[in-house]
Write a protein that binds this DNA or RNA. Structure first.
Length: 263
DNA sequence: ATGGCTCTGTCGCAGAGA
């Protein structure tokens, strides 16, 4: 049972790359962020041709999230029940098999002295409220997506230079830690402890060539589900293809038998 | 580096990203 997340920075531009990656990796579920397209214009057909159901919460120009699933999904929920997130489409959830999948695109925040940073912190707090109200950490639940925060120094290419910068500011790290305290484990870190593993590189300044990256895309799971993970990885080769997104796919494989048994 | 690319909407350049 492979679940992946990928900020594709425009599904129109990256359509073929995503289709190729799906055909190659065959995940059961792929969560997308920054699709930058309305629901009406989302290219549903090529994904259905590969056997995926498509659930989209899109908008024009910015943001937008989607869940692609090889299995029937139920209880699809767009956004928050009681928070409009400034009208931005950044959250979609669905139940696939016995797993609740929550796909999020956390606001970037622009700069720590910006109102957008306040919005980022508010959004993370609202996400914690959402989980608190709608779910129990005893459930099999994954929270995946572009969190736009590197949790620890080992997730940053130059922690001293990045300290206090957007993506590695103490206030957002602490908001993220509170969210995690709801009852999550970082599934990627369960399988890889070392530093220097990044999910995003700036388009500018030859950042990818110089490996100046951040680990800001995450797959978190509730403890019982996390314990059923057998492997996790990030597909760095996707950043070196022509006209790539600035993020790479992050994936986890769970023991499907264990999930089916409710172990 | 006071943002060096890339994307969208729209057809010159502004806004956003992290």
């Amino acid at each position: 049972m492979k679940i992946a997340t990928w900020n594709v920075n425009s599904i129109r531009v990256r359509l073929q790359q995503v289709l190729d990656w799906l055909a190659l990796e065959q995940p059961e579920i792929l969560c997308l962020q920054e699709i930058k397209i309305t629901n009406e214009l989302f290219p549903v057909d090529p994904f259905e041709a590969l056997g995926y159901q498509v659930m989209v919460s899109g908008q024009k120009t910015y943001n937008g999230v989607a869940i692609l699933s090889r299995y029937d999904s139920t209880e699809v929920l767009e956004g928050f029940p009681d928070y409009d997130a400034q009208g931005q489409k950044r959250l979609i959830a669905a139940t696939v098999g016995r797993i609740r999948v929550v796909n999020v695109y956390v606001p970037n925040g622009s700069a720590p002295d910006s109102p957008k940073f306040t919005y980022k912190l508010e959004f993370i707090n609202q996400l914690r409220n959402y989980l608190q109200k709608l779910h129990l950490n005893e459930e099999h639940l994954v929270l995946v997506g572009d969190f736009n925060i590197a949790p620890e120094a080992r997730d940053v290419y130059d922690p001293e230079a990045m300290e206090g910068e957007i993506g590695f500011h103490p206030e957002e790290r602490s908001a993220l830690a509170e969210l995690k305290d709801w009852g999550f484990e970082d599934v990627f870190r369960r399988h890889h402890e070392e530093g220097g593993l990044y999910s995003w590189w700036d388009y500018r300044a030859a950042a990818f060539r110089r490996d100046m990256g951040l680990r800001i895309d995450h797959i978190w799971a509730t403890p019982a589900l996390s314990a059923l993970s057998v492997d996790s990885g990030m597909d760095k080769t996707q950043r070196s293809l022509p006209q790539p997104p600035d993020h790479i796919p992050v994936w986890v494989v769970f023991d499907a038998k264990g999930i089916a048994q409710g172990a």
